[in-house]
Design a protein around this nucleic acid. Structure first.
Lengths: 251, 251
DNA sequence: TATCGATAAATTGTCGACAATAGCGATATT
DNA sequence: AATATCGCTATTGTCGACAATTTATCGATA
């Protein structure tokens, strides 16, 4: 057992704010750190490569990431606390399937939280913040131009996380990270087939209002943006499976 | 004592099966559940029996609760994710010491969140909810009459958690639970020696406004309540230790 | 005597092994 | 032939032991 694993785990309490999508070849051999495993899993979930309901077997993940099962277990526990996965006792971990109620609650909490973030950003009046926001919006537009739907959804959520991080409130950033992950799951579960594709435009407009220091407009645009996203969802019916099951039994 | 090179710890042959009997270690069963351990620790933290900065040794907690270290470790990890404890790598777990910035962020997020909860409660118009709130306020008054300052602080925070739970939003309840725990830590760290003792009164008034279905008044009272609590704190200076250290070094 | 270095002790991090439980398939029975 | 029961397998839950790192103590030396 002479693995030269010189893992530097610095500051477990500080979450790296920067979000990077590096698909490093740590599959099979070479250990991955907890943070890497966490980000790989949650990115896959946000991009819907792991659909809601997917079983996340501990042994399989351990093999995939080339680490021990205990490590995977820790990451799974963290994801469960963030409600991105659910843990069934003695059954294992599954990608969460938020109910309609939970979906509404997420948007309900996000509205005032996003307004708070916007107020903080406007109060800062920092050109560097605007620059980073513009760069992110450009990345979103690039993904949209490339028709990379998965990246579009993920980047769209990450815009709000970036906003919260740049606002300077670590608490708001943490909450937004969790809510954005859940929102990605919700969108994939309930989004109507017709993609509105209006979100990039709105992110750009919000960024512009922030650049102008127009707080009222920024908050209004943000609120409308969230309402648009929620309106594009089909929350009138239950989960697909539940609906199918009910319908099948009704016949 | 002729233990010169004793590396194995099982050499003593002291049977560990029933060491540290389970007098108050476990809450009734042969072993404490994760949830029980979690609640015991967080209640102690909220009541300031575990002051900020206290080291939470894994082995000690394992002995105290009569469970294995792995179990304690899980609970500690959960508390760390809730930011009630901080984990220093290779150093252990400590009760968190929120900074002034973090304290302000907590109140900043609580304000709109509490308003959201109040709106939900008013919309429900459920007499059972009012009854439970009144019962809780009575418990607060009883603790106040008994001069049980620790219980007062804990119950004061739990009033808001109860409010969020009764509002029907599991998400809001979860967030409020975390924010209330942090608020308890903040109050113990920064509360001025002069106890205002105005909180019970305000909880009662808020409950009355909710009973009347007066949303505007309830939100106003709640907002003012939070502002009062925050105003009673001494957030103008840093943490006591930091302040002392800085002052000492300045000379 | 004070500072620096080395050794010792205690605590945390990690892992593999064992036990328990749920799911599934085979089998036998009505 | 359909169903209920029993046993098997695969996966999760738990634990104790080992390794690594930090902290404390002690001794040597200038």
């Amino acid at each position: 057992m002479q693995k030269k694993t010189v893992k530097r785990r610095d500051a477990g309490a500080s979450a790296p704010p920067s979000l990077q999508d590096e698909r490093q070849a740590n599959d099979g051999e070479g250990g991955a750190s907890d943070q890497e495993i966490y980000e790989r899993i949650i990115t896959s979930i946000m991009e819907h490569r792991l659909p809601p309901g997917t079983k996340l077997g501990e042994d399989k993940l351990a093999k995939i990431f080339g680490v021990s099962r205990a490590r995977v277990r820790q990451v799974l526990a963290r994801l469960a606390l963030e409600r991105v996965v659910v843990l069934h006792p003695n059954r294992g971990a599954f990608v969460a399937e938020p109910t309609v109620e939970e979906a509404r609650e997420v948007f309900e909490v996000r509205r005032p939280l996003e307004a708070l973030v916007v107020r903080r950003i406007v109060a800062k009046k920092d050109p560097a913040i605007i620059a980073r926001l513009r760069a992110h919006v450009e990345a979103e537009e690039a993904a949209r131009a490339a028709r990379d739907r998965r990246a579009i959804i993920r980047l769209s959520g990450e815009y709000h996380v970036l906003l919260a991080e740049l606002s300077g409130s670590t608490l708001a950033a943490r909450l937004m990270h969790e809510l954005a992950s859940l929102t990605c799951l919700i969108i994939f579960l309930y989004d109507a087939p017709t993609v509105p594709a209006c979100r990039d435009q709105e992110h750009s407009e919000i960024t512009q209002a922030l650049a102008d220091g127009d707080e009222a407009t920024a908050i209004r645009l943000m609120t409308e943006h969230l309402e648009h996203v929620e309106a594009c969802l089909d929350l009138s019916r239950g989960r697909p499976e539940e609906l199918d099951l009910e319908a099948a039994l009704a016949d």
